[in-house]
Computed example of a mutant assay.
Amino acid sequence: MAHSGPPAVEIHLTEAERARLIGMSAEPSRVAIRAKIVLACAEPGSSNAQVSRELGIAVGTVRKWRAAFAEGGLGALVDEARTGRPKAELTVTDEERAVLQRWARRAKS
């Protein structure tokens, strides 16, 4: 006997949201996958399991991003700032820059 969980959160998109999600889904990134999830979830009668099968991703991932969008809209699909040590800034002198450019222009062997 199959266990059915709680019903999936309904997703209703405005035309502007749909257009933005379509644009976001064209980029090769994690945000694009999230946009595809939301677009698929916005289809009438779509279930998390169905979207999971269609996109080839875990049901938990679909559930997570469907709920995030329902609660926070488009902004919820973008990664939050991560904690930890900030990335070191690369500082290059003019002399070092000239050497790097010379190396980059050398013939490939």
Rank of each mutant, 00 (worst) to 15 (best):
K87F: 06
E95V: 13
V9F: 14
E54P: 00
M24W: 04
R105F: 14
G75N: 08
R106G: 09
E10S: 14
E43S: 03
G23F: 11
I33R: 15
A35T: 06
G45C: 06
L77T: 08
S4Y: 09
L100V: 11
E95Q: 11
Q50C: 02
E27F: 13
V9W: 13
L55P: 04
E54Y: 01
P44M: 00
T93M: 04
F69W: 03
R20E: 14
A49M: 02
A49Y: 00
E15D: 12
D94W: 03
T91W: 06
E27P: 11
V59E: 03
T14L: 06
R106Q: 12
I33K: 13
N48Y: 14
P7N: 14
A2D: 11
A58K: 12
R105C: 10
S4P: 08
K87E: 07
I11M: 10
A98M: 07
A32S: 06
A98R: 08
D94Q: 07
A16H: 08
P28A: 11
T83F: 09
L55M: 04
I57N: 13
L100Q: 11
G84T: 08
E43I: 01
A16T: 08
S109F: 08
P86T: 04
G73S: 10
E80V: 01
R85M: 13
R105L: 14
E96R: 07
G23L: 11
L90R: 06
E95S: 12
E17R: 03
L90K: 05
S47C: 01
A104M: 13
E89W: 15
A40Q: 09
T93V: 02
G72A: 05
G84C: 07
E17C: 05
F69Y: 07
R105Q: 14
S46W: 15
S47I: 03
L13T: 00
R20F: 11
L90V: 06
S25H: 10
K36H: 15
T91N: 04
P28F: 08
A16P: 01
R18Q: 09
V9R: 14
L90W: 04
R82N: 12
K36A: 15
A32N: 02
G84F: 07
V92E: 03
R97G: 06
E54I: 02
A68F: 10
S29D: 06
S4N: 10
L39T: 00
V9T: 15
A67M: 02
R53K: 15
A58V: 07
E71V: 15
E89D: 15
E54H: 03
A58Y: 08
A70S: 00
A40S: 13
G72C: 04
G60F: 04
A68K: 09
S4V: 11
A98K: 07
E89R: 15
T91E: 01
R85P: 13
P7F: 12
H12D: 10
V99I: 10
L77H: 07
T83E: 12
E96M: 05
E15M: 13
L74T: 10
A35D: 07
L74S: 06
W103P: 14
R20V: 13
R106N: 10
S109W: 09
